[in-house]
Amino acid sequence: MYRILKKRTLGQDIREYVVEAPDVARVGKAGQFIVLRLHERGERIPLTIVDCDPETGGVTLVVQELGKSTREMGDRFHEGDTILDFAGPLGKATEVEDYGTVVCIGGGVGIAPLYPIAKALKGAGNTVIGIIGYRNRDLMIYHDEFSATCDELIVMTNDGSYGGKGFVSDPLRELLESGRKIDHVWAIGPAIMMKVCSEITREFSVPTTVSLNSVMIDGTGMCGGCRVEVGGVAQFACVDGPEFDGHKVDFDLLMSRQGYYAEEEACSLERYLAESTDGEKGAS
């Protein structure tokens, strides 16, 4: 059993948890992930590590409540409560070195796992330019952390409610067209965002790393459900990744596979919401 040490709301349907898992906190690195299971009937949920604190044994995760399991976690799992299963760290860590000038691009909830990468790259001596994008200003997670870490920071919102209006790919293109020397790009966020960013950086031949969150069960190489095509070869996101060369990833396949269980996910969420409403009625 793994205790929730801290929980806070970062934005609408986005929460941050610090879970007590000393073994993971001791060795977990930026770019790696964990798998958790809330309870006996739960699914195994892969989540990318945001922070590890070996002192407190805490592992920080940021969860967007999109489906049944993440919503249930938000509704029913509070500070002091325990999570049944928590395994990690899994996958390969980010290759952190001094590249020179790097751009870290984050979209939505992908900004959270990008943060430790940006921090580590900064620590390794890189000049770090951050480009982070949100749907609107109410969802602005990890903005202060990026402000404190990046040498330069560009913030975009889709509706223009904060910073520039548009997508993260817009300032990326401007930056590359300006002729400034960029040595490496990280892009973490929705598959479509990573795809567009990778297409832009390919034009300018800037090496680009993306982190793929495909559907998986065990997270340790056993199911093969997370397979993606990289350079035309099938790779397992869980053990060969989750970070890959963005110029070689077949993003259309990734998006197709991410959507395979959409009907089941909708059914599960609907059922959960109906039950929750009944529960509230019963309690009142």
Binding site: R41, G42, E43, R44, K68, S69, I217, Y260, Y261, E264, E265, C267, S268, R271
Partner: peptide, 15 residues
């Protein structure tokens, strides 16, 4: 392992 044959009682689906 995940009892998908009991979905949606259990959370893991299968098709």
């Amino acid at each position: 392992l995940m009892s998908a044959y009991l979905f949606p009682e259990y959370d893991t689906p299968i098709k």
